[in-house]
Design a protein around this nucleic acid. Structure first.
Lengths: 208, 208, 208, 208
DNA sequence: GATGAATGAGCCTTCATTCAT
DNA sequence: AATGAATGAAGGCTCATTCAT
């Protein structure tokens, strides 16, 4: 497995690239832009990354590892599947609102890009993230908490659901709402629709 | 309002561009590629579209008008909100599986692009499509069929949900499944989660 | 010798081209511009002129024949060299002020273009024009009126002199002055410098 | 004020561009041509000049500063207006014969271009050059040496005069004549016509 | 004759990448 | 290690010219 980010230079580079790729798009961002944004020289980028594309995939790895670390921390000690699912979703949304650049790159661009080059990008962290969600659903089902349709793609639907809503929030942010408030607002919607639908009748009284 | 597509040439152009934009992405597709794919000369493209960007936005208009036409037809005569919602979703998925290029451009690229240039692209058809879904939800709520959280962004979540799942299906199509079967598979999942969650208890007997 | 202009279409074409070439320059004017300005279709231009370049050289011929015709008329009946020289210069300036487009093309662009392609452009009329001036000077010298340095390029200097001044007038026209007044103003300057210098002492009392 | 030319690269570029613009014209010269002529790569031109147009205007500045430097040097120490005028004209002609490319660009193209875009090109040096001539005339008049028609455009006429003659010499150079000889030939003509006309009677004894 | 859609060479410019310092 | 000047392929677009109607 490739390294993710080692030193200050690389982190500066990844964050600069993240900012620019998210705002303007990958193709519309030049290596010179990234150099400028990161305060380095163009040539120096190539000391760290083979080329533009490998900078992008390092960015995928970096972003998903950050996300995964936060989720993992949030999940620690949570036992029951429902609160684990809530934590998983809420922390994802919070991370996205706090890091809209990574959100766009991980949840919007990356999936698009997978289509263009079906060879699996080095991408274990994000796959790990999805797998984590899938496993929470599986646990909840096994414990009789959820009544889940057999389909293992459900987690992708759930992720896409909040991604779609978060996208709108980032597009038109309400200036007065804090990230935490927005998370609650979005999660309430998910609870009242998706999660409500997934719960077995007797569990319908739960709150996160 | 701008024209959508008039003659054979323009349809050939839009379909060629759609194929390439969907597969390689907008920036990675050159006008020369489009000319070649459509069997025309480069210069001829400019007889129909002012520049590359306006070809893209014509493509948005074209794709969403095709989608909207199919949905509208499918909805005709359907009265109750549940079967209207089902028709809306099912036809969207079917259209997407049958026209993966338009799907990618309309449901994946477009939203990304909105972020980069917040001026509303000339795009009434897609907006119309979303509004149609929103209205079905509203009707169902008013008739006491759904118990919908007040949030008007719910429709975006629902759309994103199936989009996320369809994306996977297009990424890794199961070779033996027909589009219709895949629609059923995906819709069953939506029914068992999202729609189930939205229905008021007394309405839990389904139609399709 | 090639034809100059035969029918209405060609005159319209030449005048349109003259207007545009003078204002924007030859390379910056497209055949489509000319078609539009002349009210014809692009393809139709090629019924009259082999290509863009031959339209330009027809324009040279046309413009210089117009100029030459006016000069010739003005010179009719004038006997003495001084009034012939005055008429020659004054009519040239008047023509230029009245037809700034032709002026620019004949006196500014053409000479520049000669440098680029030293093969003599079909250009008898303009050469004829210069030769006419040269001959007036020669006559005046032979008759003892002028004391002219032997150099036969003097006429080119004289022409260039007024061209330089007219250029400024066209660049920054004084709105209230009529062409005739401007001619007088410029010619007075020429008289007080160039012509005064050319006259033999005993003739210094002449006026045009 | 913008820089004029700093290093070898830029001088090579300006001279290559000068050569080509003078010979073929601005629009007929491609950036590739310039790159080839200067021995650089196309992209490298853009390290020094923002675009083709700004290369042209740098060329104007460069050429006129060269000219102006020579004139200024030649004028040093010259006191009386007549010899200053002679030096001004002679050095201009010499410069033009020695640098026909700059001559064409500065004295022929530039004035044409002013017409197309009346916004004053950054061009102080050339304006400075004209102003210098105008001032010499003014001095001579104030000192009672010249009898000058009041018109301040006279200097433009004088400049145009020799420009017109030099143009012919460059068009058809006499192979055996040195630049210095040609200067003398042309200046003699100017002396015998223009300057003779300008001098007050009592001053008709010449200096050179 | 008259039209204007169609063509594709060629233009200016950008930018990922290399490499001498 | 770090720099940024240099490179040249490739992109979007224009336009003189042709030709089917």
């Amino acid at each position: 497995m490739k390294k993710i980010a080692v030193n200050d230079k690389e982190i500066a580079l990844l964050e600069a690239a993240g900012r620019l790729f998210a705002r303007r798009g990958y193709s519309e961002t030049s290596m010179r832009d990234i150099a400028q944004e990161s305060g380095m020289a163009v040539g120096s980028i190539y000391l760290h990354y083979r080329n533009k594309e490998s900078l992008l995939s390092a960015l995928y790895r970096y972003g998903s590892s950050l996300l995964l670390a936060r989720i993992t921390t949030r999940l620690e000690g949570k036992k029951d599947a429902l609160s684990r699912l809530a934590a998983y979703i809420q922390e994802s949304i919070l991370f996205s609102l706090e890091n809209p650049d990574f959100f766009l790159i991980l949840f919007v661009d990356f999936r698009r890009r997978e289509l263009e080059r079906p060879e699996p990008l080095v991408f274990s962290s994000f796959r790990h993230y999805v797998e984590l969600g899938r496993q929470i659903l599986r646990e909840g089902t096994e414990k009789g908490l959820f009544s889940i349709p057999k389909h293992s793609d459900l987690i992708l639907g759930i992720i896409s659901f909040w991604v779609g809503v978060v996208l709108i929030k980032i597009l038109k942010p309400s200036p007065e709402a804090s990230p935490e408030e927005t998370v609650q607002e979005i999660f309430a919607m998910i609870e009242a629709s998706l999660i409500k639908g997934l719960l077995k009748p007797q569990n319908s009284r739960r709150k996160s």
